[in-house]
């Protein structure tokens, strides 16, 4: 356990704000997929850097928690390192890069490759919580559409995808239906990760700081990715395997090596890759 900075409340946020966020979280868990408005606080970072996720984590985290933060699947990118440092300074909690050891995992774009366990909590940083926003700019109208379960519009987007690209080209933030009721934007995770949400033993919490919305997928909830009968949902596949660990079952990032067109594919989940390559965790 690292020593916490003095002069801050535990985990930065004041206790009243945490209570307010916890109330929103409870409601979100009670109504899976429903976007609960909450009075988002100003955080010491710009919108778009994960203010929603950080507020959710701050409201949840306790002294015994072990925090993992990933950005694009990686534990050592700027955003991940900064948020991890933020909580070790303001809450003094232990941090890890190993998926299996973490009790709370804050993420920007990925769900870890290693299966999540009961009791683990995923916290997502959400830029645009409203899946219908692309076609319906009015907030009052989208609320009505959700309330009445009128989701024809979501299929209009998929139709448009197929007529333009010959297939459903939406590769991230792919809309899902939670518990047969609300349509939800799963944040910008690749659609490769959508099946991991379905009946997941972990609790998934989504925080949108700019839009001030919180929503949730409780453990073991059925989560269905929308599709057409003749264009069923499918995840991305790569012809290559990971150049470092040889994994053929993980989400791969393409890395351009030089301007001669050479490129290679590596796992986006750095912990998974390092674990398979037998090098243990990457350095903190």
């Amino acid at each position: 356990m690292t020593s916490a900075e003095t002069g801050y409340n535990f985990a930065y946020l004041d206790e009243d704000s945490k209570r307010l966020i916890r109330r929103a979280l409870l409601k979100a868990v009670a109504v899976p997929g429903y976007q609960v408005p909450f009075a988002g606080r100003e955080m010491p970072m710009p919108y778009g850097w994960g203010t929603g996720g950080i507020q959710v984590t701050a409201a949840l985290i306790g002294p015994d928690d072990v925090l993992k933060v990933i950005d694009q699947g990686s534990d050592d990118t700027t955003n991940a390192v900064s948020i991890r440092a933020f909580f070790s300074k303001t809450a003094g909690v232990a941090t890890t890069t190993v998926t299996g050891e973490a009790s709370i995992i804050q993420t920007r774009h990925r769900i870890p490759e290693r299966p999540l366990k009961p009791g683990q909590i995923m916290v997502y940083q959400v830029p645009i919580p409203e899946p219908l926003r692309w076609l319906e700019p009015g907030e009052t109208e989208t609320r009505v559409l959700h309330a009445l379960g009128e989701y024809g519009l979501m299929y209009v987007k998929l139709y448009e995808d197929i007529s333009r690209h010959g297939r459903i080209a939406t590769s991230y933030d792919y809309p899902v239906e939670v518990f047969g009721r609300y349509i939800m934007s799963p944040s910008p995770i690749p659609r490769f990760d959508n099946p991991k949400l379905d009946r997941s033993p972990a609790l998934h919490l989504f925080g949108a700081g700019r839009e001030k919305r919180i929503y949730a997928v409780p453990p073991y909830s059925p989560v269905r990715s929308l599709d057409f009968e003749d264009y069923p949902f499918a995840v991305q596949r790569w012809p290559e395997v990971c150049a470092i660990c040889g994994a053929s079952d993980s989400y791969l990032d393409e890395v351009v090596l030089d301007d001669g067109g050479r490129r290679l594919f590596v796992c986006s989940d750095s912990d998974y890759c390092a674990g398979r390559a037998g090098k243990g965790s990457p350095p903190q």
Binding site: G152, L153, V156, Y159, I162, S163, F228, E229, D230, Y231
Partner: peptide, 18 residues
């Protein structure tokens, strides 16, 4: 597109075959 505009009512009515 025009196709999606015409198809919207059908999809709202539960049509799920592209």
């Amino acid at each position: 597109s025009a196709g999606a505009n015409i198809g919207e009512r059908l999809m709202a009515g539960g049509w799920r075959r592209y």
